[in-house]
Nucleic acid binder design. Structure first.
Lengths: 165, 165
DNA sequence: ATAGAATCTAGAGCTAACTCTAGGTCAAGC
DNA sequence: GCTTGACCTAGAGTTAGCTCTAGATTCTAT
């Protein structure tokens, strides 16, 4: 079986423009052409495409993905380099996910902050008396709820039946 | 206490250029100026900055962060909008983290693929006999190892003492 | 008092990753 | 046979998010 650029684009949910751009950047040296010069993707090419899509999602720049594909085309002498490359990006992705988890935690605390303000009808309940400054104790209060076993994912949710004015 | 743009930049580990750019984009309407027109950040401003940094990390575009800050400056009438905004971006971030988890899983399987190839000295061990195409059973084999209780985070790691030729 | 560092604004410049246009080729259906 | 639509290349255009430059203050430390 072989596939046109349009078919591949549909399967991967990316545009043919993008695929041609990737080709221009050296990401698709494995793709064959027919007599008319049109790209014909083979079944095995999807193994490469899968890797490209994965690395993209992991946030690896196109140029570096190109370097990796180059290694792949070179053969067994580059196996260690390829391993190291994936190892490095695994570590980076783990670090990124840890950061995103902190970000998510923060978002959830702020959601709780607004849930409680909303229920009180005013943000002033979180301010230090007589000021417009947020009372640091409010964040501590939220942390205490979490420490006491509440699920931070639920704490910021509005109770059922809250009217959407 | 008040802080100069340079001090804030240091604290947040971003450049003063970037802070001015954010200001230009409407993200910092709360920042005061001294007689000479220089920005003076207050302690309470860090609550906003924290939110801005968080939303940036969550992947929210600068313009949308600006919209959120506008809501904040408007007062209690926007509490629900602000809650909805955070709620929406919490959901998006959760979805993104799920995608990244799949990406990480894939990266780990490929690491194992190269670990085993490296140990065999050639990638051919993963090809269908007599071809240059990857045997789909190889991925299935990895999945089986995981199903049997192996930690995918460890499976791809090279054993200790592997020489770094 | 003055040199050097930090700040200001306006606006130009940069990079990554597309995204599209123009002008042409090719294959399939009427 | 001819039209329609997918494909081709080269190269221009776009967007986001900075990043820097120039020229003019202003602050800090000797």
């Amino acid at each position: 079986m072989s596939y046109s650029i349009g078919q591949v684009a549909d399967k991967l949910s990316i545009s043919p423009y993008t695929l041609r751009y990737y080709d221009k950047e050296g990401l698709l040296p494995f793709v064959d052409r027919n007599q008319a010069g049109r790209r014909r993707f083979k079944d095995n090419d999807f193994n490469f495409l899968e890797v490209i899509v994965c690395l993209k999602e992991a946030g690896v720049p196109v140029k570096q993905i190109g370097n990796f594909i180059d290694l792949c085309m070179t053969g067994d002498t580059t196996l260690e380099d390829r391993y190291d490359f994936l190892n490095e990006h695994e570590a980076k992705l783990e670090a990124k996910m840890a950061r995103l988890q902190h970000t998510l935690d923060f978002l959830r605390w702020k959601k709780w902050y607004y849930k409680t303000a909303l229920q009180a009808g005013t943000e002033r309940i979180h301010y230090l008396p007589g000021t417009n400054q947020v009372d640091p104790a409010v964040h501590a209060e939220f942390n205490q709820l979490v420490a006491d076993g509440a699920d931070p994912k639920d704490l910021g949710n509005l109770p059922e039946g809250t009217a959407k004015a």
